[in-house]
């Protein structure tokens, strides 16, 4: 009688381990390939940082452009997303629900469709088409719902009504209330939203591949280029640089999530 549950536990553990192996083994292979002298010979050929420095020399600009777009994306989505989240929280009417639905559309519809629509509409404006701002537009559309949702979750969890009323009794006008009550209270949401927006923007490819030009190559665009035309070690080293960029963002998400959960208890 005891043997059956134990067997079931072992089978499930085996499935979990196999799944984890499926997720992690290719990452390990990629990281190793990026620091191996010759992937086809294996690690007996020796470890090297040569590929990493070659990638850095070739593709450095894509890293900086991706960071610039991601930062700008956070600023824009916070500036337009927080006021929208505030309204969604304070006035839950049919109109605001419709607004919420609309803002999610660019996430529900594939980036390829949004990118084609943007190109067919604004592609003739050369100044915009060739600028990094064109990519930023796509990223803002795609990440805005995540910022709004993160802010909304935090605002909905506090008693905004009472706080604002207290501030109003003390003579604070709306502008002052928004600055001194809403923004500080929404800060955990803004931070959580910012981390999500950074992560999504740095990795965005579906829109970016269509929107980029040879002079506005982001990191994922460069990655696709290296996968298609570079030797495996270079492609792997480039992927390693990308993973190293993602790591602090992912750890940040974990830390913020934990602190937010702890704070709300």
């Amino acid at each position: 009688m005891r043997a059956l549950p134990a067997l079931r536990f072992q089978l499930q553990l085996a499935l979990a381990l196999a799944t984890a192996a499926f997720m992690i083994v290719p990452v390990v292979v990629s990281v190793l390939a990026g620091v191996t002298e010759n992937y086809f010979v294996g690690w007996r050929s020796g470890l090297t940082l040569r590929w990493l420095s070659e990638v850095w020399a070739m593709y450095q600009s894509t890293v900086w452009l991706s960071l610039r777009i991601a930062m700008a994306c956070v600023v824009v989505t916070a500036l337009i997303g927080l006021p929208a989240a505030y309204v969604l929280c304070r006035h839950a009417t049919r109109a605001t629900r419709l607004l919420e639905e609309l803002l999610v559309l660019p996430v529900a519809v594939p980036g390829l469709a949004t990118a084609l629509a943007l190109i067919l509409t604004y592609g003739r404006w050369q100044a915009l088409r060739t600028s990094w701002l064109f990519i930023l537009v796509g990223h803002v559309l795609f990440t805005l719902p995540f910022m709004t949702r993160a802010c909304l979750a935090v605002l909905a969890a506090i008693d905004l009504d009472a706080l604002e009323e207290a501030a109003a009794t003390l003579g604070a006008g709306f502008g002052e209330r928004f600055r001194t009550v809403v923004v500080p209270n929404a800060m955990p949401g803004i931070v959580a939203g910012a981390l999500t927006v950074l992560t999504l923007s740095v990795g965005e490819f579906n829109l970016t591949w269509m929107l980029h030009t040879p002079l506005t190559q982001t990191l994922p665009v460069g990655l696709a280029d290296s996968y298609a035309s570079m030797r495996l070690e270079i492609a792997s080293a480039y992927t390693l640089i990308f993973l190293l960029m993602l790591l602090p963002l992912l750890v940040g998400v974990q830390v913020v999530a934990r602190r937010f959960v702890a704070g709300s208890r």
């Binding site: 992690i24 990795g203 696709a224 992927t239 963002l249």
Partner: peptide, 8 residues
């Protein structure tokens, strides 16, 4: 791997 984009 949650944050890996499709290309990767």
């Amino acid at each position: 791997p949650l944050a890996f984009p499709g290309v990767v």
